[in-house]
Design a protein around this nucleic acid. Sequence first.
DNA 1: TGCTATCCTGGAAGCGCTTTCAGTAAATTA
DNA 2: TAATTTACTGAAAGCGCTTCCAGGATAGCA
Lengths: 338, 338
Amino acid sequence: MAPVTVYDVAKKAGVGIATVSRVFRRSQEVSMETRQRVLQAAQELGYVPDAAAQALASRRSNIIGLILTRAPHHISSDAFLNQILFHLISEFRKLGMHLLLEIVEDVQNPEGYLHLVKSNRIDGLIFSGPRSDDEALVALIERGFPTVLMGYLPNTNCFSVDINNRAAARTAVEHLIHLGHKRIACITNASLSYSAAAERLSGYQEALEAAHIPYDEALVRYGDFNLESGYIQMNNLLDEAFHFTAVFIASDVVAFGAMSAARERGLHIPKDLAVVGFDDVPLAQYVDPTLTTMRLPTTELAICSSDLIIQLICGEVPEQRHVFLPTELVVRDSCGVV
Amino acid sequence: MAPVTVYDVAKKAGVGIATVSRVFRRSQEVSMETRQRVLQAAQELGYVPDAAAQALASRRSNIIGLILTRAPHHISSDAFLNQILFHLISEFRKLGMHLLLEIVEDVQNPEGYLHLVKSNRIDGLIFSGPRSDDEALVALIERGFPTVLMGYLPNTNCFSVDINNRAAARTAVEHLIHLGHKRIACITNASLSYSAAAERLSGYQEALEAAHIPYDEALVRYGDFNLESGYIQMNNLLDEAFHFTAVFIASDVVAFGAMSAARERGLHIPKDLAVVGFDDVPLAQYVDPTLTTMRLPTTELAICSSDLIIQLICGEVPEQRHVFLPTELVVRDSCGVV
DNA sequence: TGCTATCCTGGAAGCGCTTTCAGTAAATTA
DNA sequence: TAATTTACTGAAAGCGCTTCCAGGATAGCA
């Protein structure tokens, strides 16, 4: 039951412990012959290096934190999370790294992830859904801790990976405009303190402006990540807003909630109301009607973030500070035929 | 930039390092006065104990692994994962523990999570979606490593948390039978090597048997976790099976795919076809028609697992080896009116 | 052949903490 | 007052690894 240590392996292989360490650190400076002998001995003894000891001695935990800023009710609706997780873990595994997940429910109380950093539990972190009012995060970045944002924080020069939310939203709304719609409502994906939400709203405004359609605040509502918020805000629009023939909803999940509300009112989509979503969650092509939406490059988002954080941890300086990945309009049935 | 250590705190507080350690380990054996002095000094110096050093010295990493056995295409459809994650992390945080996520794509190649155990990176693990052909897992359990299954593995006495899949499925199908349906098809949530899938199919059979409806294999198809599999299997049923008026689909997500296929064929749900799902994912009440389904006690599942694993790690022996949580039939519109 | 450069290896000193053990001071008891 | 607990505290020995440094062997060069 006594743990197998470097000493055991070293003894069995007839080498010093430094050599054993070198072999497992994949260092070049061990002769082929010795390396084989060590590996053989380790194999026979069932030796696996102790993670804590490695971390303590090398100052590297090989753990990367993924910090999610989400309130409980957001979490359950987050259709990306799974894909992001999958890809991040796959990438990390290739490098012998692991993913530790932390959720920040309240931005004002960032103790959770700060503690991870201060205790050296993680080598770097990926921060999903950064908010500009998160002072702790900004401080961390300025202190030089390896950090990558999934999302974008204006006025910082933190490394970040995101899509061009504004351009994507504009494309989505332009699609509606090309279809002849003049009165186009908007439901955001979240409150505007999330930069992605603010940007998407700007894109909506830009598209209107370019088409000389006046921006009407009465046609705008604010979603809150989940189905219910879409349902509520659509009902609200239907109750209070002047007639509109189309709606841009900056989140598929929110859109599903909204479509449900529209249906209950007896509105037919797309005949009475055209809908464009945002995200292209897997379900978008299986709902009725299938949802026209902006596709997010989920895989690339994850891989790109992982590449960046690894570079930062290794002390390299990535060429690009801010990466913006392309999105793609996926035309389905919710806007009618072109 | 030099890290603050116990020595710094000890010096500043005028005590020995052992005392500093005791204060941070929340040990009782420090006088109030000394404790205050240490805390004060630590505060002023910004001291946070080093996780690796603590782990090495105490043989406890305070990290719990959550192992998911999922193929890539399953992950993205997993509607629970998020909720489970959220609750687990919340529970762990209360105890200063953290969650490390690992995905096992191929059960035949369990190196990933075994390495976590062997390297002492984690104190215990929660295993979601255990499969009976996972020999490494069984070996781990027998070796006494703190392990909790989310799911159930027959023929082992591992601690586990699950729902009674068979009873739940039976309830779901009985609902259809009470509604007068005689020819009821079934699409499983996954291949039968997942015990949950096999159990749910058994529940379906039990319900039929109890109602003296002959079991007809021609009415059964096997889903594969995701939307697409539901779509495909429903088309397959519609192509090949004799007429049926209802279908029990052992996963909401699979059901959404299946409903999409039925719609494309011009079938009206529930008029032409009644559907009962399983899981009660958030979307179930927002699709058209809203989906009658079995509700899973997601929160309880997570909390229960976390309680169990913590007990095991602390060396306590939980009273119950296998916990089965109750489910609830949520009646909505997809089966028509009673 | 003699000298330096190169390659590989082992010894030893930590990394920052926990924990045992012994010891001191205060409290209790006789 | 002396003997015995009891309550805290500190010194020191690791936990299992990495890495600096120096040394031995070999190769390269003149």
